[in-house]
Design a protein around this nucleic acid. Structure first.
Length: 767
DNA sequence: CAGTGAGCGAGCTTCCGCTTGACTT
C-alpha cells in the first residue's frame, strides 16, 4: 500500500521530485493531457450548451490504466500538474477519469522544481479551481469550432485538405503581409558621407549624420569641402551602461539558437528536450523569465567564484509578455558549476548558450565611456561626427553578448584617438557612398515566433508545431535566394580632386527565410475577406481577456462561446452558400502562336498555366509553375517557356534521353528511370553530354545503394537508405528487424520479413 | 515519385495545447 501518489505532467520532472520527497511518496507522470475532444465533428454538442465530449486517446490508455491502479492503492493523491489553465484542466480530467474521491485528493502547485518549493506546496494544498478549468474548456471549444468550421469552408471554396485556425491562419497572414510589403517597397537611393582625418599617426573616421538624396546635392557638398578647414568643435565624453538580457524563455531561446547556431525552431526544441531529460537544464517550454531563489543564490556563488564578487549582481526579472502563464521557471542550467554539458556537439552548444545567458543575467552591467567628437567645416554648415565606445568595466559582457535580428553594419567603433577642442585636423579624403533603402526583412522561423509571442498567439509548446503545420499545408516555404549583383556609386574627394567610380556588391542573398506560396496568399485573402474577425491580429488577445474573466468567475464560459458562435456560424453558412470557388486566376495575355488567351491559376494540383479555354473543339494545354514562380508576378514570356519542356535531348544507348519539369523539379528521363538535375543545371540549357553524365552517375550510385540482390527474384533487393538498410520488394519498402544482419539475409528470410509486416503505406497509396 | 486539368460522387481532410517516443525511405 502506497501512502501518497503525486502526479505531474512530465516524466523527467517526476524523477526529480521523487528524490526530494522520500519513500512515503511515489511520483508518476501523466504525459500531458490525458483526455481530449475526439476527431469526429460531433465532439462538441452545440445545441446542448456546447457540452464537450472527452475521450482518452489510444496512446494514453495504458498511462491512465496504470495511474488508476496506483491511485486506488494510495491513501492520498496529489495532483501536481502545472499552475496554469491547461494544467488545471489536466488535474480535473485526471479526477474524472481516475474516479478520484474528494477526501483523498489534493491539488498542489509549484513554479520551480526545488525541494523547498515542493515541500511548501505540500503544506498548502487546495481543491481544483473549476473557474480555471472552464476557461480552458472555453479555449478548447473555441479552437475546435474555429478550426473545424473554417477548414471545411476552405475544402469547398479553395482546395481539399487545407486548414485554418486561430493561430496558424494569423501566422500565415504575417508572412503574406511581410512579403507584400517587400514586393511593393519602393527602393530609393541616398548617399552617406564619411571623412578620414589625420590625428598624428592615427586616423579618425567621422560621418555626416544626415543623408544626401541626389548626386547633385552630394556633388555640391563635396565641392564645397575643397580647401575647407576642419576644426574639432566639440568633444563630449559621457558614461553609459549596458544591461544584460533576461534569462531564456522558449521563444528567446529559439531566437538566439536560430541566430547564433543556425538551428531551426524544432531542432532547438529537440536538443533542449535531451538536455532537460538528462537533468542539465530546467524545463524548456516556458514563458517565464523568473529564476528561483535557489538559482539566484547558485548563480551568485558561481559568478563570485569564477569572476569575482564585483561581477555579481542579483537581478529578478518579471515577464512583460501579455497572456504569459508562468507555470515554470526560465530556462536555466540546473547546476551552474557545470560549465559544459551535453552528449553531442549540438547539445553542448545549446547548453553553452543557456549557461552564458543565465549567468550573464545575474552579472553587473557593463560600464562604458561614450565619446562623441564633432568636427566643423569652415565652408559648410554640415559637421562630421565620430562616435566611439570604450568599455571601462566589462561586467556581463565577459560571458555573453546577445545578438539582434537586424544584422546591420552599425557596430560602434572602439577607441577613438585623443583630440582636443580647437584642434585643426588635416583631411586625408572624403568619400560619399551610395546606399539603397531596404524593406523589412522576411521572417525567419524564430523571428516569426518572436512576433507571434508579441501578439500573444500560440504557446511555448506550440511554436515549433505551428511552423511545421503551415509548411506542411504548403502555405509557407523556406526559401533559399541567390543574391543579386547591384552597382553603387562612390565619390572620392582627395585634395581638390573629386572623382567617382561605380562599384558593385551582392545583396539580397537569403537562406531559411519564410515566404508565402500562392495557396498561402489565396487562403489568407479569402479568410481576410470573409472572416476578418479571426484574422485580426488582436483576436487572440481579445478572447484571452474573456478567458481571464471566466477564470475569475465573472463570466460563464458557455455564454462567451454562445456570443461568438452564433454570428460566426452564420458567416460560415453564408460563405458556403454565396461565395464562388476561388482560383486566383489571372490572364497574362495572348499566345502568339495559337492566338488563344493564357491564364495562370490554382488548379487541382497547384499553381499552373493554361493556354485556351476548355470547349468541345478545343483542348487546352497545361503546365505546372516551377519553384520560385508565383501567380502574382509571372510574365507571359516566363509562362510560355514552361511549354518548351519536356523535350528529347538525343539518344543514349538507343533510347531517348528526355529533359522535363516534374513535381519534384527538373529531371532527366531515360530507360524508364528519372534522375533529378543538379543544383546548377538549367533544364532549358542542359546539354546531351551532361544528361549522359547524370545517367551514368545515377547507375553508379544505385550500385552503391545496393547491399544485396537475389537470383531468385530481381524485384527483391536489400538497399541502403536514408534511415539505414531496408528491403525493397516490388516497389514497396520494408523494415529489417534489428536482430538480423542486412548483408546476411537470404531470399527466404526476406520473404518472411515481408510477410510479417503489414502492407507498407507506399503500397497502399499507389493503388 | 516525375501524370494529371470533363463531371459526378463517395470518403477523406481540419483545430490548439499538454506531454514523449515510434517511425520515417
Amino acid at each position: 500500500m502506497t501512502k501518497n501518489l503525486v502526479i505531474v505532467e512530465s516524466p523527467a520532472k517526476a524523477k526529480t521530485i521523487e528524490k526530494f520527497l522520500g519513500k512515503d511518496y511515489i511520483v508518476r507522470s501523466c504525459f500531458g493531457h490525458i483526455r481530449d475532444l475526439p476527431k469526429d465533428s460531433n465532439a462538441v454538442d452545440i445545441k446542448n450548451g456546447y457540452k464537450p465530449f472527452y475521450k482518452v486517446p489510444d496512446d494514453k490508455k495504458t498511462v491512465v490504466k496504470d495511474l488508476k491502479k496506483l491511485a486506488n492503492a494510495s491513501e492520498m493523491v496529489w495532483l501536481a500538474s502545472d499552475e496554469d489553465r491547461e494544467g488545471e484542466a489536466i488535474s480535473w480530467h485526471l479526477t474524472e477519469e481516475l474516479g478520484l474521491k474528494e477526501n483523498k485528493t489534493k491539488r498542489i502547485v509549484f513554479h520551480e522544481i526545488t525541494k523547498n518549493a515542493i515541500l511548501a506546496a505540500i503544506e498548502n494544498p487546495r481543491g481544483i479551481d473549476m473557474n480555471l478549468v472552464n476557461a480552458q474548456q472555453a479555449r478548447r471549444v473555441l479552437d475546435r469550432i474555429v478550426g473545424f468550421e473554417l477548414s471545411p469552408v476552405l475544402w469547398k471554396k479553395v482546395r481539399p485538405s487545407l486548414s485554418a485556425g486561430r493561430v496558424q491562419s494569423v501566422a500565415v497572414r504575417l508572412i503574406v503581409e511581410r512579403e507584400r510589403e517587400i514586393t511593393s517597397f519602393n527602393i530609393t537611393t541616398y548617399y552617406k558621407v564619411k571623412a578620414e582625418f589625420k590625428v598624428k599617426d592615427k586616423t579618425l573616421v567621422a560621418e555626416v549624420p544626415g543623408r544626401f538624396d541626389t548626386d547633385k546635392e552630394v556633388e555640391a557638398f563635396l565641392n564645397s569641402c575643397i580647401n575647407a578647414v576642419f576644426t574639432v568643435s566639440d568633444v563630449e565624453v559621457k558614461p553609459a551602461t549596458r544591461k544584460p538580457a533576461p534569462p531564456f524563455t522558449t521563444s528567446t531561446l529559439q531566437q538566439e539558437a536560430g541566430r547564433k547556431l543556425g538551428y531551426s525552431v524544432s531542432r532547438t526544441m529537440t536538443i533542449a528536450q535531451k538536455l532537460y531529460e538528462d537533468g542539465h537544464i530546467t524545463y524548456m517550454r516556458t514563458d517565464s523569465v523568473n529564476l528561483s531563489d535557489f538559482a539566484l543564490a547558485a548563480a551568485k556563488m558561481q559568478i563570485s567564484g569564477q569572476f569575482g564578487n564585483h561581477y555579481s549582481k542579483v537581478r529578478k526579472y518579471t515577464t512583460e509578455i501579455s497572456g504569459a502563464q508562468e507555470a515554470h521557471e526560465a530556462i536555466r542550467p540546473t547546476a551552474f558549476e557545470k560549465l559544459k554539458a551535453g552528449a553531442d556537439e549540438g547539445q553542448k552548444k545549446l547548453y553553452d548558450l543557456i549557461w552564458k545567458r543565465t549567468i550573464a543575467s545575474q552579472m553587473a552591467e557593463a560600464k562604458l565611456e561614450k565619446t562623441v567628437i564633432t568636427i566643423s567645416n569652415s565652408k559648410n554648415k554640415e559637421s562630421f561626427v565620430a562616435e566611439g565606445e570604450v568599455i571601462k568595466f566589462d561586467g556581463f559582457l565577459k560571458v555573453n553578448i546577445e545578438s539582434s535580428d537586424d544584422d546591420d553594419e552599425n557596430q560602434s567603433s572602439g577607441l577613438l584617438p585623443v583630440v582636443n577642442k580647437g584642434d585643426v585636423l588635416p583631411c586625408n579624403h572624403i568619400t560619399a557612398t551610395q546606399k539603397y533603402t531596404r524593406p523589412l526583412p522576411r521572417y525567419t522561423e524564430s523571428s516569426l515566433v518572436k512576433k507571434m509571442e508579441e501578439l500573444g498567439i500560440g504557446r511555448p509548446s506550440t511554436y515549433a508545431p505551428t511552423i511545421t503545420t503551415i509548411m506542411k499545408r504548403g502555405y509557407v516555404l523556406k526559401d533559399k535566394r541567390e543574391g543579386e549583383i547591384r552597382s553603387f556609386k562612390v565619390y572620392n574627394l582627395k585634395g581638390d580632386k573629386l572623382s567617382s567610380a561605380m562599384k558593385s556588391e551582392t545583396v539580397g542573398a537569403e537562406k531559411d527565410k519564410l515566404t508565402p506560396s500562392d495557396i498561402g496568399k489565396l487562403v489568407t485573402d479569402f479568410l481576410q475577406e470573409h472572416f476578418g474577425q479571426i484574422m485580426d491580429y488582436h483576436f487572440t488577445a481579445n478572447v484571452e481577456k474573456e478567458f481571464d474573466e471566466i477564470a475569475q468567475g465573472l463570466k460563464l464560459w458557455t455564454n462567451m462561446i454562445d456570443a461568438f458562435y452564433l454570428p460566426f456560424h452564420q458567416e460560415v453558412d453564408k460563405t458556403i452558400a454565396n461565395v464562388e470557388k476561388v482560383t486566383g486566376v489571372r490572364e497574362l495575355g495572348i499566345d502568339p502562336k495559337s492566338g488563344q488567351p493564357v491564364f495562370v491559376k490554382i488548379g487541382k494540383f497547384g499553381p499552373m498555366v493554361q493556354i485556351g479555354e476548355t470547349s468541345d473543339d478545343n483542348k487546352p494545354r497545361f503546365a505546372r509553375l516551377q519553384k520560385g514562380q508565383s501567380l502574382d508576378d509571372i510574365t507571359l514570356a516566363q509562362a510560355m517557356k514552361l511549354f518548351d519542356l519536356p523535350k528529347v535531348l538525343g539518344d543514349f544507348e538507343e533510347k531517348p534521353a528526355r529533359v522535363g519539369l516534374g513535381k519534384f523539379g527538373p529531371y532527366i528521363q531515360h530507360d524508364n528511370k528519372f534522375i533529378s538535375l543538379g543544383k546548377d543545371d538549367d533544364p532549358y540549357k542542359i546539354s546531351f553530354e551532361r544528361a549522359v553524365e547524370l545517367i551514368v552517375q545515377k547507375r553508379d550510385s544505385d550500385v552503391l545503394k545496393r547491399i544485396k540482390s537475389f537470383e531468385e527474384d530481381a524485384n527483391m533487393l536489400v538497399l541502403n537508405g536514408r534511415f539505414g538498410p531496408y528491403i525493397s520488394f516490388n516497389k514497396a519498402n520494408y523494415r529489417i528487424p534489428k536482430t538480423q544482419s542486412p548483408s546476411d539475409l537470404s531470399y527466404a528470410e526476406c520473404l518472411e520479413i515481408i510477410e510479417k509486416q503489414p502492407a507498407p503505406k507506399t503500397a497502399k497509396k499507389s493503388r
